[in-house]
Nucleic acid binder design. Sequence first.
DNA 1: TTACTATTGAAAAAAAATTGCAATAAGGTC
DNA 2: GACCTTATTGCAATTTTTTTTCAATAGTAA
Lengths: 147, 147
Amino acid sequence: MNVSEIEIFRDFIKKKGLRYTPEREIILKEIFSIHDHFDVDELYLRLRNKGHRISKASIYRTLPLLIECGLVQEVYHEDGHMHYEHIYGHEPHAHFRCLSCRRVEEFQDPRLEEVAQEYAQKYGIDLKMTRFEILGYCANCRGKGGL
Amino acid sequence: MNVSEIEIFRDFIKKKGLRYTPEREIILKEIFSIHDHFDVDELYLRLRNKGHRISKASIYRTLPLLIECGLVQEVYHEDGHMHYEHIYGHEPHAHFRCLSCRRVEEFQDPRLEEVAQEYAQKYGIDLKMTRFEILGYCANCRGKGGL
DNA sequence: TTACTATTGAAAAAAAATTGCAATAAGGTC
DNA sequence: GACCTTATTGCAATTTTTTTTCAATAGTAA
């Protein structure tokens, strides 16, 4: 599908002196076919269901590379493990998570990036990513578990 | 020291029909004596060094309560485990984390709370907490590992 | 094609968090 | 204060997540 992220990843891998393997590309492609957040287990099962026998170890080894080159981001830690999303080609966005139903909504606000940019500029920071989360009880759930 | 968080915690525990135990209070007090981020292991060792034989299980069981009543917050997940901080009595603040030296800096910006408040209002959300993180390479580290 | 060595899958290990259980103790009632 | 009910505790075992080890495989440059 989208060629760009593949090129970015390949260039990144080459530039680091690493090897561009089929496993790495398959993982990348699968991640970019998921239009939602995912965790390692989900990704592993999706690959498996498509006939790819890629180990979880390879997924765990590939994710940091994808994160380092800015294609993927850790979104939030929930239920004892990390959840990810692909971010290349998407505007930076914030997440609301309902503490009751666990629903996750995305939204954007230019002020968030502004704050980050200004802070980075002020302190000479090489900004890599931002994460903004709002936690609370959604309209449907408030009043139930929500105090 | 500060009596308020103790009262808040006790009231919260009572309101839930739970029991206010010495262990819970000791954990609370210790957390509020740490003026930095901490993880479960650090907290456990601090308690142990002071002669308290409180198990990690109790810490793991107490933290969600402290979070639920708004005294403590999960700050970030790093090195495979969660890091916490006490938030009662502090202004909401954002965190910058250097991906190289791991340094963590705090800063405030009213726009962040504004965005959260507006979003909550717009969707009828009962806002519980926000988390804003900036990840990148600090002035000292940029250029080294920082692409 | 050859040589070098990074990467892989599988299994083991490590680390983090949760759970089961018997003993203890909080806190309400008499 | 004694008694009763049951939540909480510490410990150990377990579960879950992530990392590491290692022999076999396979990229990639020469």
